[in-house]
Every structure is written in structure tokens, then in C-alpha cells.
């Protein structure tokens, strides 16, 4: 079982304000340790695709398998448990809980999973923050950090449960070029360490860093770009 993610004939419709098809018969599969990007213009359906792949959106036709398990048709609670264990999320906005410290934010999904003692989760979280060069900000309230720092904490949070797949939705969309460069490097490093990553972006530089890239146009996966690195 080398395919981490298999999507078969995904179709998605929006019913509001008018009936329209967002995703047209999309099929794709992702190998373990592969770093792919999905490119597309605003409105092309790339975010919709991402939410379907992320199991956050269950209103679609077709089949979705992650780690060999069929996602389609699972209940919301089952999906939530699955995401907790297998998927790490990085969004355009950091979505850190503002009342919590950077360290606590990273720890929460780990505590939720309960595979480790809270002391172990704490050590793991600390190591991840160090890896993101955020170690000295661990005890800062997340709302007190800068945008680039917050995004790095969010990445650490996505990694805490050693997910099988990391999903990123425009992770650099809110950042300046300096911070963008840092985040790119982090992603590249994560990919080199063997993580499976799927990232939505409209940044060609980001696409070039990846192993492979899809382009989505008007809801169809229209082309496949071989990445620069492989």
C-alpha cells in the first residue's frame, strides 16, 4: 500500500446561489513521501478540492481513500477521529487559539489523540517548535506572535501526531516574501524527511519546490507538471 491518498471521480456541486459544478470528475493519487502542489486561479475550485480531500467537506460524489481507508460515507465523528490521527492541516490563516501559548497550541491535537502521555506530547511539541526555530517563543501567547511565527507554530501543530499526509491551503498566502521563503524551506525539508504533502497554492515558486504539480482549471485537473526536483 504505497498510495497514501486515492481520489476517484470526484464531482462536487454548489447549490447556492445557483446550481453549479465546482469539481469535474477529478481523479488523483498520491504516493507516500510525495510532495505535490495543486495550482489554480482564484475560483478554479482548488480550495473546494482541498476541503473534499481533507474530509472536511462530505458533500461530493465519487470515492476518497486515505491510507487505504474509505473516507466516503463515514460519519462526522469518525472523520474527526481520522483527521486527528492521519492528517495535518496548515491553512492560509494560522487558526491558532489566541488564549493559548504556542506550545499549548501545538500540544492540543496530540493531547486529543492520547497516544502519548502529556509529558511526551509536550516534549514532542517542544522539539517541533525548535525545529521551526520557534523554541524560544514556546511560552508566548499565540496572539502575541508575528504572522510568520504564527504560521510556523501552525506547521508544528500540523506535525504533532506524525500525520500520514499534510494538507496545506495556501500556507504562504498571508506572508511577506521573507517569511514565504522560510515556509518554503520548511516544506521542502519536510518533504525530504519523507512526509507526504499536498499543498494548494497559486505561487509558481512553490510549485517548483515540489515533486509534482497539478493544475486545476474550471474544476478539472487539467495538466500535470513534473516538479523541478525529480
Amino acid at each position: 500500500m504505497n498510495k497514501v491518498l486515492i481520489a476517484e471521480h470526484l464531482n462536487k456541486y454548489f447549490h447556492e446561489p445557483v446550481e453549479s459544478q465546482v469539481l469535474h470528475d477529478i481523479s488523483l493519487s498520491l504516493d507516500r513521501s510525495q510532495f505535490v502542489t495543486v495550482m489554480g486561479k482564484s475560483g478554479s475550485g482548488k480550495s473546494s478540492l482541498m476541503y473534499v480531500l481533507a474530509t472536511l467537506d462530505t458533500d461530493y460524489d465519487g470515492n476518497l481513500f486515505i491510507c487505504g481507508e474509505r473516507m466516503t460515507g463515514l460519519t462526522e465523528n469518525q472523520l474527526a477521529q481520522f483527521r486527528n490521527r492521519h492528517i495535518g492541516f496548515i491553512f492560509q490563516y494560522h487558526y491558532l487559539l489566541p488564549e493559548f501559548t504556542a506550545l499549548q497550541n501545538v500540544m492540543i491535537p496530540g493531547l486529543k489523540l492520547k497516544h502519548k502521555s502529556s509529558a511526551q506530547v509536550r516534549d514532542d511539541a517542544m522539539a517541533l517548535l525548535e525545529q521551526m526555530q520557534m523554541g524560544k517563543f514556546a511560552e508566548y501567547l499565540s496572539s502575541k506572535l508575528s504572522g510568520g511565527q504564527q504560521q510556523r507554530v501552525a506547521i508544528a501543530r500540523a506535525l504533532i501526531n506524525h500525520p500520514d499526509i499534510i494538507m496545506a491551503d495556501e500556507p504562504t498566502g498571508n506572508l511577506d516574501s521573507a517569511n514565504t521563503a522560510i515556509i518554503f524551506d520548511i516544506f521542502r525539508k519536510l518533504a525530504d524527511e519523507g512526509n507526504t504533502i499536498i499543498a494548494i497554492t497559486h505561487d509558481m515558486d512553490f510549485v517548483r519546490k515540489a515533486d509534482a504539480g497539478f493544475e486545476i482549471r474550471d474544476g478539472s485537473l487539467s495538466s500535470y507538471i513534473e516538479g523541478a526536483k525529480k
Binding site: A54, L56, E76, N77, A80, Q81, F82, R83, N84, R85, F89, F91, Y93, Y95, L96, L97, P98, I108, P109, K112, L113, R157
Partner: peptide, 15 residues
Amino acid sequence: NDIAILKAEGFSGKD
């Protein structure tokens, strides 16, 4: 926002 991310991270409606 917090509710959204908690749910994405794996917290169920019950949680």
C-alpha cells in the same frame, strides 16, 4: 475560528 480548527484537528461535535 477556534471551533473550526478544533474540528479540523479532530475534535468531534461532542467535544
